[in-house]
Amino acid sequence: MLDNAPLEKARHIQAQRRLRDEILGAELFGDPGWDLMLDLYIAQASGKRVSVTSAAIGSGKPMSTGLRWVKLLIEHGLIIREADPHDGRRSYLHLTDSALDALEEFLARC
């Protein structure tokens, strides 16, 4: 049986961040890199693929900011961009093994 605890913790953290933004305003707080990584973790753990566009939107910031963060996370070896073999206009993102391990360690310790 799969341990869903890390996935549920990630979903809870994501929901708390959205609630904070709703109540206090997203313009005062933000961590697009963390939001992107949480979103990718939840998607991967749920067996879903995330396009670059969806990930940038999921950062909770303007598209240009989200795309800058995608690029930065790729440069730091935390996420990988892979072309869609069926549609050359689309690419998908996923966490690297080391980023996945780090997030799972974080979730296990929180």
Rank of each mutant, 00 (worst) to 15 (best):
K48Q: 12
D21I: 12
A102Y: 14
E105Q: 15
Q16K: 15
L38N: 04
H86A: 12
L100R: 13
Q44M: 07
Q44F: 08
T53F: 03
Q14E: 03
S64R: 05
S51T: 09
M1K: 00
A5E: 15
Q14T: 13
V52P: 02
K61R: 05
S98T: 14
E82T: 14
R18G: 01
R90A: 13
E8P: 05
D101T: 09
E104T: 15
L36G: 01
E104Y: 02
V52E: 05
L38M: 11
F29E: 14
Y41R: 00
R68W: 02
A10F: 08
D84H: 02
R11V: 08
L28I: 06
G60K: 06
L67S: 06
G47R: 13
R11F: 06
D84N: 11
T65A: 07
G30T: 03
M37Q: 06
Q44R: 07
A45W: 10
P32T: 07
L78T: 07
V52A: 05
D84R: 00
W34F: 13
Q16P: 10
S51Y: 03
G60Q: 04
G88D: 13
D21N: 08
D87Q: 01
G47T: 10
S46K: 05
W34E: 07
L7T: 06
D101Q: 14
M1R: 01
Q14S: 13
E105W: 14
H86C: 04
G60Y: 01
S54M: 02
R17H: 10
R49H: 03
D3C: 14
H12P: 04
L19N: 04
S64K: 08
E22P: 08
G33I: 13
L95V: 07
H12F: 01
I13C: 05
R17I: 15
D31Q: 15
W69L: 05
G88Y: 12
A55M: 04
M37R: 12
A45L: 06
K71T: 07
H86L: 15
G25M: 11
K48P: 02
I23L: 15
H76I: 02
S91P: 01
R18V: 08
L100H: 10
W34Q: 14
H12G: 13
H76F: 01
F106S: 15
N4K: 06
W34G: 04
I74A: 01
A26E: 13
I80G: 06
D35H: 14
T65P: 10
K48I: 08
A26P: 07
H76Y: 03
H12A: 14
E75T: 04
A10E: 08
H94S: 11
D101K: 13
D101G: 08
M63Y: 05
A15K: 05
K71E: 09
A55P: 03
A5C: 11
